[in-house]
Design a protein around this nucleic acid. Structure first.
Length: 191
DNA sequence: ACCGTGATGTTCT
DNA sequence: GAACATCACGGTG
């Protein structure tokens, strides 16, 4: 069931598009939680001024320089964790930001972690879904082919591409159509 | 429904 | 010391 390493070793745009409709699962001591991915963004390394890996390898971005299929997390605005999947082969620093989920398993636990009851607002943003799944900065470098976090096939949605969200600083790259959404899905906020 | 704003910690200049 | 791949809240319409 679990997606194999090869799934992630392809280019970031392909991985981002194909992750729509897959189910991301965390299985922690408190319980199993999951959601179906309905919104992603590709970040394409050296050719993408919006990518964290655009300016090369640092302590923070080094995970992108290993093989695909590992987790990249970072803290944004001092408060929220964003969850990414490393794509492509070694030394091609591409990745996919998971931006929204349709809640699936362990909804009660996700509500408790979030302190919210509204299903639509449970996983409808990168910070929200990370909190709902119990993903912390300790997940940096976690193996998606392991036991505590993994991704598996689930649904088959119609996918559309749009500009990415909140990357206005990136000049020309801000307009690249590298965001992918499950068309019409109600767990996506921005259209 | 749509603003405006404050909260907060890392990373990089 | 600024900028940041965000969210929740409170205000106004």
């Amino acid at each position: 069931m679990k997606l194999p390493r090869e799934f992630y070793l392809r280019d970031g745009l392909t991985v981002a598009r194909e992750l729509i409709g897959k189910k991301i699962v965390t299985n922690l001591p408190e319980g199993l939680t999951s959601g179906i991915i309905v919104e992603t963004e590709a970040y394409m390394g050296a050719i993408d001024a919006a990518a964290h890996s655009y300016r090369g390898k640092t302590e923070r971005t080094k995970i992108f320089y290993g093989a695909g299929g590992f987790v990249y997390v970072y803290l944004i605005y001092g408060m929220y964790i964003c969850t990414n999947v490393v794509a492509n082969v070694e030394n091609v620093p591409e990745g996919v930001l998971i931006r929204a989920l349709q809640p699936a398993d362990g909804v009660e636990l996700m509500k408790r972690r979030r302190g919210k009851n509204n299903l639509r607002e449970l996983c409808s943003g990168p910070g929200k879904l990370s909190q709902a799944l119990g993903i912390t900065k300790n997940f940096y470098g976690a193996d998606l082919c392991g036991e505590e976090i993994f991704i598996e096939p689930a649904e088959n949605f119609k996918v559309t591409a749009t500009k990415r969200i909140n990357v206005d600083y990136a000049g020309e790259a801000a307009d690249y159509p590298w965001r992918f959404v499950a068309e019409g899905n109600k767990f996506i906020l921005t259209t």
